[in-house]
Structure formats: C-alpha cells, structure tokens
Nucleic acid binder design. Structure first.
Length: 424
RNA sequence: AGAGAGUUGGCAGAGUGGUCGAAUGCGGUGGUCUUGAAAACCAUUGUACCGUAAGGUACCGGGGGUUCGAAUCCCUCACUCUCUGCCA
C-alpha cells in the first residue's frame, strides 16, 4: 500500500507509474484518493476541536464537583453532552472516510522503479541474460511427465485419488531428490548468511493483508472452513509477517531469513493444456529468501539476491535466463522484479523457477514494519523476497535435460544429498 | 475441551471513576564529575494522526457499551498462565 503522504507529494509521478503498470483510470483514482484524504483531514480537525472542548468541560466538572458546586456542574454537563453527540457524528464520518481511503489505497499497485521496462505483457519483458547453448537431447527424448512414469518416481493418479488434481506423490528416488533439493537450497542460503526458520504454513487474515495477498488474491488461497486461517501460498507470508507491527533498531538491519515450506495455490481458472505434469501444482515445495533492508541498500541487495539464485541454478547446471519484468507484467506489490527461468529441453519451454522482487515500502506500510534511522527517526523499511528456489519446475528441467539412455543423471551438487547419481 | 487467574510504556511493576500518557525500579540516550572507565548525580526517554509552529486528538490485549468524564465499571472476542482432560 502506498502512503497517502507520498501520493500527496508525488501526484504526477504516481500517475505516470500507474500508467506504466497499465492501471485503469490512474488520474481519476488518484484524484479520488486526494479528495478523500483532504476531507478526512478537515473532518478530523473538526472532530478533534469538538473533543478538545468537551475534554475541557469534563475537567471543569471534576473541579466543580469537588468544590461542591452542583448547579454549575449540571450546566457544564449539559454543554458537554451536546458536544459529545456532535463528536460522535463527526467521528463516524471520519471513520467512514478512513475506511474508504484504505479501500482505495488497497486497489493501487506499487509504483514501478525507473529501470522497469515499458511494456504491456510477458512478450515485452526485457531479457537481461540468457544462455545461448541448450542441451542436445536424443531423438526419443521424453517430456518429464513421461519420464516420471518410466522411472516411477512421481504418482499423479495416487494424488488424484487421495486428494485431487495437482497433489502428486513423490516416490522412492523422486522423494529423495525432492529432499535433496530442499537441503541443497537451504544449505546454499545458510552459506549466504540467511537465518533458517521453519514457519507455520497457516496464516491469519491480518498476515494475509500484511503482505498483500488479501484482499485482492483471496481466490488464490485455500481457506480453512470455520476459521480465519489460510494455507500459505508462499513462505513469504509467514516470514515477512514475523516483522509486522515492529520497529527495528538501526543495527538490526539487514535481516536475512530463509525457510522451506510447502506452498498451496488454488490456481483458480488457470488449469489447462500448458500445465501438464509438474508445470503447475496446487501443492509444491519452495525455499524462500526474505530481506528487511535499509531503503538506501535495497536495490544493491536485490541484485545480490538475484546473484544468489543465479548461482544455485548454475550449480544445478541448468540453462537459464533472467527477465526484467515490464510494467504490464510485474506484480501488484513489486517495484522491480526479476524472473528466473530454466529451459526444459524436452518441452522446449522456459519455466519460471524464481521471482525476486523489491517491494520498497509497499509491504512495510501495510505491515507497519519500521526502523529507527541514525537520527532516531522512525521510517518504513524496505522488504524484498525471492524464491531460491521453487522445486517442481527445477525437477522437471533436471529430469528432461539430464535424461540419457542409462537414466537420469543427478547434478553433481546434489549427489551428496541424494546418495545416488542416477535415476534408472 | 472444562475450571480458575491474568493481559498496563523496551522490560519489571503500581494504579478500581476526574489533575493518569500513566507512580516506581531497571534498561536506553545526553550531560556533570574523572587521565579514562565504573559509581554517583542531573536531564531526557512510547506510537499514530492533524498542524509551519504553539499545540490538539487518540491509544493501558482487540472490538463494543455505560458516564459530562474510563487503564479503572459492563458486554464480547483473542491470547497467556495454573489445575484437570486429551495427545504427536
């Protein structure tokens, strides 16, 4: 959520940013925000004045009662009572305006950073880097959904029976490979200085609002009946919300946290031909990295995070590319976002395996996540996060790219975790 | 899940209707003293909104109510602790 103060001070900049994001009717929305905000402030002053007057009377009454001057006290009571009614009315209006202001602000996405490319959709994303050599597969190369069956390492039908579509069983070497990937990712993050946490995988509504999944993406999460709890769509939610309603000390920053969790996504409406096999699931595993940073450092840090993720992909020996998402494709919350994609050679497709973003103060404002700066002033921190990494598509790419006649070769970096070097 | 007791500022802990944004202690910050440090002493030390400022308003777990006036009384929800039950 943008700060009203920021919108007030940077009206034109905000409108231009919203246009870059292809937000409908930026001028009208911003105008509405500013008007609502102005009215709110005016009414608040009025209400506060009435309350101040009432407080004066109350103090007076106290004194008069003590002095035993009942008549005058009664008089003052009458006046105070009428003021009270007035302040109640004003207060209701202020509350109403505050509510509509917040609702308006919830609809407004983050303003893109200046280096976000212009563009309407995924075709306009800027390719920051791409490998130029791709694995050459034998003629009979199989897509991963066939390899999975051939080696009996993942069972979708069992998942269908026990739970439903998109909840596969990993079996034998498939399950071990999953575990190896999780361990490998966590170890890499640990070596890079991240504190490992194991967060809850259920979150409450306040947390959903804190990181921006609510109110707009409610349909993407599973809600537990009879509770206000949701299954997490990403570890970002429970990890970043660790710092909700927090004022950090200056030297607490930077904060770097990693965590492995399963992630749950309803993916309502996006089920179709493109999502066979591991390409899109309702439950999947992911290791996430989260930063809380000083505003001055956040863009350097974003690149460091990108490097970290790139390093992991390189160690896995997967062909990859890095995209700088354009204004039309970048997510609601992000100011700048890089997508990392690996090439899955049998499908002949790029698969998104990570997304690393700087939210600047957009999340922090909702979270009330602040820190004391050098001058002991309280200001909003910057939050960043990235997947490092999401498992299923990495698995798909490993299976497809590393298939040989003898079986599937396990990347060297994983072998100490799997205990085997071939799936056959 | 049942019974009882709680929830106050960074922490500990007073405060049961008016001058309480809140005693006191600890901690933090600045200063005096000292060659330096400790100790001692003095001052200062919550958050948010409005305002150029002076200042005003709100906040004592969340929400609602009673009252001219609520940290204090009432209702409700959440959480914590103790005992009982259950349990990986």
């Amino acid at each position: 959520m943008l700060q009203v103060q920021f919108i007030r001070d940077n009206k034109e900049k905000v409108i231009l940013g919203l246009k870059k994001k292809y937000f409908a009717n930026p001028e009208g929305t911003i105008e509405e925000v500013l008007e609502t905000d102005k009215k709110r402030r005016e009414l608040q002053v009025e209400r506060d004045n009435v309350l101040a007057e009432g407080n004066q009377y109350s103090k007076e009454i106290g004194k008069l009662m003590k002095d035993g001057n009942k008549e005058k006290a009664e008089e003052a009571k009458q006046k105070s009572a009428s003021l009270k009614n007035k302040s109640k009315e004003l207060n209701e209006e202020v509350t109403k305006l505050e509510k509509s202001l917040i609702e308006l602000l919830y609809q407004i996405p983050n303003i893109p950073h200046k280096s976000v490319p212009e563009g309407k959709n995924a075709d306009d994303n800027e390719i920051v880097f791409s490998v130029d050599t791709f694995p050459e597969l034998q003629e009979k190369a199989l897509p991963h959904w066939d390899l999975i069956e051939k080696y009996d390492i993942i069972d979708f039908n069992l998942g269908n029976k026990v739970t439903g579509a998109g909840f596969p069983y990993y079996k034998g070497k498939g399950a071990k490979l999953q575990r190896a990937l999780i361990n490998f990712f966590l170890e890499e993050a640990g070596n890079a200085g991240y504190l490992e946490v194991q967060p809850p995988i259920l979150i409450n509504e306040a947390s959903g609002y804190g990181t921006g999944q609510l109110p707009d993406k409610e349909g993407q999460m599973y809600k537990l009946e009879g509770t206000d709890a949701y299954l997490i769509p990403t570890a970002e939610v429970p990890i970043t919300n660790m710092f909700r309603d927090t004022i950090l000390k200056s030297d607490d920053l930077p904060i770097k946290i990693t965590g492995y969790t399963p992630c749950f996504r309803r993916e309502a409406g996006s089920w179709g031909a493109d999502v066979r096999g591991l390409n899109r699931l309702h439950q999947f595993d992911k290791v996430e990295i989260v930063h809380i940073e000083h505003p001055e450092n956040s863009y350097d840090v974003l690149l460091q995070m990108r490097d970290h993720i790139e390093g992991i992909i390189k160690k896995l020996e997967l062909p990859y590319r890095i995209l700088n998402l354009c204004g039309g494709d970048i997510s609601f919350n992000a100011a700048l976002c890089f997508d990392m994609e690996v090439y899955s050679a049998a499908q002949k497709r790029w698969l998104e395996v990570s997304s690393v973003s700087n939210f600047e103060t957009f999340q922090a404002n909702r979270l009330k996540l602040r820190f004391k700066d050098k001058n002991n002033k309280t200001q909003l921190a910057h939050t960043l996060n990235g997947s490092a990494l999401a498992l299923p598509r990495i698995l798909a790419a490993i299976l497809e790219n590393n298939q040989t006649e003898k079986g599937i070769k396990i990347p060297t970096c994983l072998q100490k975790f799997t205990g085997f070097d071939l799936i056959n």
